[in-house]
């Protein structure tokens, strides 16, 4: 039962993220949506590797118990760093857009392709 809780949180996070990206008009909120989506996927990865009662996957002096999977943790770490870079780039683009147009609303744009 308790195992399912993280996956429920994943669903909630993904839904929130998609909602923010699709229905919000403020550019910063769109970026927040992308980041929340990223966090949802990261949580999904990390909870896939969780084993109940497992210990940290460090082989030296580890007790002979089941370990949580190390690979998803490595993947999540990488993905967190990538997410950071993506959000930083998007926020810097928003900064320049605001300087240019004095507006953060995604509706007053000039490109309609």
């Amino acid at each position: 039962m308790l195992i399912d809780l993280p996956f429920l949180a994943v669903v909630v996070l993904l839904a929130l993220g998609v909602y923010a990206v699709v229905f919000r008009h403020n550019l910063i909120k769109i970026v927040m949506g992308v980041h929340i989506l990223g966090s949802g996927v990261n949580l999904f990865l990390i909870s896939l590797g969780y084993r109940e009662g497992g210990v940290a996957p460090i082989f030296t002096h580890a007790p002979k118990l089941e370990m949580v999977l190390p690979t998803p943790q490595a993947l999540t770490l990488t993905s967190i760093v990538i997410n950071l870079a993506v959000v930083a780039l998007m926020l810097s683009l928003i900064m320049l857009i605001y300087k240019r147009y004095k507006s953060l609303d995604s509706r007053d744009r000039r490109l309609m392709g």
């Binding site: 550019l27 970026v31 780039l89 683009l93 857009i97 744009r109 490109l111």
Partner: peptide, 9 residues
Amino acid sequence: LEAAFKYMV
């Protein structure tokens, strides 16, 4: 800038 932002999202 807008095109880049759209692409990035």
